[in-house]
C-alpha cells in the first residue's frame, strides 16, 4: 500500500516524513521538496511523474541515500538513513539499493559480466559465489549469451538490461529507476518494462521509478505526481495517457 499523506504505520518498508530539499544557486534558494511524505510497502511498484524540474530525481537521490534532505527523515526497513554518516550511508547503499539510471552508466572497459560483478566485489563473497550470482542475474535479464561482450557491443536495450542485472545482483532491498526507458525506443522500452514487472511480480522486488512516459507509468501499481514539492496520488493512469500523450 502506497500513501502520501503521512498516515502509513511503521510496518512499511520505506517511510519518508516531512522531506524538504532546498538548493541554493547563487544566493537564491530553490525549494524543490516541501514537506513530502511517502510510505511504500515491500513489493510495491511506484511510478513518479511530474514536469521537468519538479524534483523527481532529487527525491530518488534522497531515497537512495545519494543525497541528504534539508529537513525531514527517511526510514528504510527500520533504519533511519537521514542521520547516517557518509561512509555508513555508502555501506547502506551497497546493501540495500539497486540503481538503474537513464543513461546506462556501465563501465565501458569492463564486460557485461564484469560490470554486473562490481557490486559483489564489495561483499565477502568468494569468486565462485560471485560467479553464480552474476550468472543468475544475467539469466534473469536474458543476457547469458552476451556476458563477455563490452557495452559498446550491445544495443541500448541490452545495455539497460545489464544495468538492471547489476542493480539486482546483490539482491538489494529496493530498486530505484530514474527514467529507465528514457533513452530507448518503444520496443526496447516495452522489453525493459516487462523485465521490471517480472522483478516485481515474480521476484517480489520493491521498485520506485521515475518516468515521463505515461505508458511506462501505467505498468506500475501506483502513479504519484510531484507537484509543488509534494506527492499527490494520480488521476488514473489511463487519463494520463490521453492528457499527456505518448512521449
Amino acid at each position: 500500500m502506497v500513501r502520501v499523506d503521512g498516515s502509513g504505520n511503521s510496518q512499511g518498508l520505506i517511510r519518508a516524513r516531512g522531506l524538504n530539499k532546498t538548493y541554493s544557486r547563487g544566493g537564491e534558494k530553490i525549494q524543490v521538496l516541501q514537506g513530502l511524505n511517502l510510505d511504500v510497502d515491500k513489493g510495491d511498484f511506484v511510478a513518479f511523474m511530474g514536469p521537468s524540474g519538479s524534483g523527481k530525481t532529487t527525491l530518488l537521490n534522497l531515497l537512495g541515500g545519494l543525497d541528504v534532505p534539508s529537513a525531514g527523515s527517511i526510514t528504510v526497513a527500520g533504519d533511519e538513513i537521514t542521520h547516517m554518516s557518509g561512509s555508513k550511508l555508502t555501506q547502506w547503499r551497497a546493501r540495500h539499493v539497486g540503481f538503474i539510471f537513464q543513461m546506462y552508466n556501465l563501465i565501458p572497459v569492463l564486460t557485461a559480466y564484469q560490470n554486473v560483478e562490481l557490486p559483489l566485489l564489495l561483499t565477502k563473497l568468494s569468486r565462485s559465489e560471485r560467479r553464480k550470482h552474476v550468472e543468475t542475474a544475467l539469466a534473469v535479464v536474458g543476457l547469458t549469451d552476451r556476458m563477455h561482450h563490452y557495452p559498446r557491443q550491445l544495443s541500448g536495450g541490452q545495455e539497460q538490461r545489464v544495468t538492471i542485472a547489476r542493480a539486482i545482483v546483490s539482491d538489494p532491498t529496493f530498486l530505484l529507476c530514474d527514467e529507465p526507458t528514457g533513452d530507448l525506443d518503444r520496443k526496447s522500452a516495452d522489453e525493459i518494462m516487462a523485465l521490471i514487472e517480472e522483478l516485481v511480480g515474480k521476484y517480489g522486488k520493491t521498485v520506485l521509478m521515475v518516468t515521463h512516459d505515461p505508458l511506462v507509468a501505467a505498468r506500475a501499481h501506483t502513479t504519484l505526481h510531484l507537484e509543488k514539492g509534494v506527492l499527490v496520488e494520480g488521476k488514473t493512469p489511463r487519463e494520463g495517457v490521453f492528457a499527456g500523450g505518448a512521449a
Partner: peptide, 8 residues
C-alpha cells in the same frame, strides 16, 4: 556510478 553502487 561506482560511488552509488557503494564504493567508498
Amino acid at each position: 556510478v561506482l560511488k552509488a553502487i557503494g564504493l567508498t
